[in-house]
Design a protein around this nucleic acid. Structure first.
Lengths: 117, 117
DNA sequence: GCGAGTGTGTAGTGTTTAGGAAACATGACG
DNA sequence: CGTCATGTTTCCTAAACACTACACACTCGC
């Protein structure tokens, strides 16, 4: 159930192959947690870390923050804020898109980016 | 800072005018919390309740669940799940829409509902 | 005047979150 | 051999979350 740990461990080890600065201990130090804690995270012995720690980890491992947060069972707080400001609107849109195929959602993204409003 | 309590209190009192079954005590009983707790919630003496309790309260007071959750600083967990399943896609879309006017978002909703994908 | 119902104040409880500290075991190197 | 550096294990905890329990004070309707 803890996709998160395995994903992080794989990503880190892959970086570690070419660069010994990506040992568990050094990564832990750079993102500001204890080595023991990161070890437990990687092996799913504890729940995924806080949003803040997850973001530091994503940056360190050069992974997509939203993906890593998702693996940790979280949604970025800035996205939540957007939704909370117009709850009815966004709730409706997101539920509407729950079963839409990727390409349909992507089309909307492009549509909005080409901002014709 | 606690919009939530005031909103709930106003809604409940408004219902109470025409129907004495909407006393704080009776509402508390129906949604399954202690009266003292609901009292503190209404006056913002404690943080807004859990998602589950908020949803029962919304139903009881016939208010929009997403709005009430938003006032409580939360986002419905089913919306979060939708986002977590395709984080990159939805993160992009939502950030893109952060500053879009309501009518633009609404147009998307309609577009999707008329499901042309 | 008293019982039923109302809202409130104080205190305390169990659980979850998000880690830290320190010791331990292993292996590589010089 | 000694000493790094690596990953791991055990134990502990401070703070936040989500409430409950219960006594108190007030106000009606009869």
């Amino acid at each position: 159930m803890t996709q998160f740990g395995a994903f992080v461990q794989t990503a880190r080890r892959s970086l570690q192959e070419g660069d010994r600065r990506y040992s568990l201990r050094q990564v832990a130090k750079r993102i500001g947690v204890e080595p023991g804690y990161l070890s437990k995270i990687e092996r799913g012995q504890v729940a995924p870390p806080s949003e803040a720690a997850t973001l530091r980890l994503a940056k360190e491992l050069d992974e997509d923050p939203d993906v890593l947060l998702a693996l940790g069972g979280k949604v970025s707080s800035d996205l939540q804020e957007v939704i909370r400001k117009r709850p009815r609107l966004f709730a409706q849109l997101i539920r509407e898109l729950r079963d839409a195929p990727d390409h349909a959602v992507l089309r909307l993204v492009r549509e909005v980016r080409d901002g014709d409003w």
